[in-house]
Nucleic acid binder design. Sequence first.
RNA 1: GGAGGGGUGCCCGAGUGGUUAAAGGGGGCGGACUGUAAAUCCGUUGGCUUAGCCUACGUUGGUUCGAAUCCAACCCCCUCCA
Length: 418
Amino acid sequence: MSQPKSEFLREAQARGYIHQATDTDGLDTVLCEKAPVPAYIGFDCTADSLHVGSLVPIMLLRLLQQTGHKPVVLMGGGTTKIGDPSGKDGQRQLLGDDEIQANMAGIKAIFRQFLTFGDGPTDAVMVNNDDWLRDLNYISFLRDYGQHFSVNRMLTFDSVRLRLDREQPLTFLEFNYMILQAYDFLELSRRMDCRLQMGGSDQWGNIVNGVELTRRVDGRELFGLTTPLMTTASGQKMGKTHQGAIWLNEKNLSSYDYYQFWRNTEDADVGRFLRLFTGLPIEEIERLEALPGAEINEAKKVLAFEATKLCRGEDAAATAAETARRVFEEHTLGEDLPRIAVSRDRLAGGVPLYELLRETGLANTNGEARRLIKGGGARVNDAKIADESAQVSAADIGENGVIKLSAGKKRHALVEVG
RNA sequence: GGAGGGGUGCCCGAGUGGUUAAAGGGGGCGGACUGUAAAUCCGUUGGCUUAGCCUACGUUGGUUCGAAUCCAACCCCCUCCA
């Protein structure tokens, strides 16, 4: 692709957001000619939050808005009732309306951090495909659109082919998913002149279907663009860690943990992540990623701060950064550490360490806590405890009024009397 | 409807009457080494009131001193035939 003229494509390309696109030159022309071009990305409502796996598309919508276009967030309220077969071996559990509704509310809160919503020309809007899918009439839908889908062709798409190749079941219900997603694109093109659909690389087939359907039905040229699959430099899928997924919302993952996730980025990923997950200028990123040896840690701090700022706000990012600094550089306490309260009475009688480890979330079960102690990873006020049945009592309260518990070198929690 | 194959711990996958809470790998957690990195090495990885007890190999019953392993019925999945 030659150097794009539109700011959006130029930045997206420079920052590594683009994996594939249908007609880059055509899209470039459209983006230059018409001021705000509406573009959308669809999101499932299968959980009440999104995790970092969805962050690349979200950042792409953000970039779209910053370069003068209009982001459309499509909530898959309707398609979630069916389940996208892409990248899955088995049929998904189907969700009910109430659950989908609740999940949608949680996801909306996340988008408000990254995008500016409103009624202005470049303000983001959120739509729900249940609004137009719910009342579709089966016969008329088949007659109007079914003729444009070739089953022969559908069978060649990865989402379907992989299932069939692996001899995994694929129901007719799921097989219809791509038709409905294609129809979404047509619908958004008609409703709000949406010209571009973006998504993860696994959405390529679904996106292309929408482009083709609209060309056949309305004779209108639409565009598709996918983002690369995110893995770490060492080949791991991004976003999984000890406590599970890296959630974007505060309720599922504290800002401190979110900050730490980015702080612990592999060396080889720092530059790539700075481009994708922060809004810093490219020149600044080039300087940071070139830092030699251990100095790369400075770049990781910038990455962690900026990424946390975008997702959780500047205050949360500053607090998380300060907590991390105190914990790791001064070996003291930070206010962002998870904490629990234990009554003075209970503490007076002595409480088994393993119970406290579990209650603070440093271990999931008492057994796991015991193993942690046995394995030499548990500490009370920075002193290693090797006795599995050790008790913690009021005598362990430090001068700052709390007891510091640690699981390994990186995970800490505070117990306070209350 | 008929014939065959299969359902094992977070995932993959061994195991076909006893020392099997179940090989091996992945993933997770902890330790060593480091730079809060990667790679590597070591340990650990069902639960609990942890020298003991409880729950577990699709479900329910049965045989047996003893079953993930044998039998029966049922549920679900895959392949081929109709």
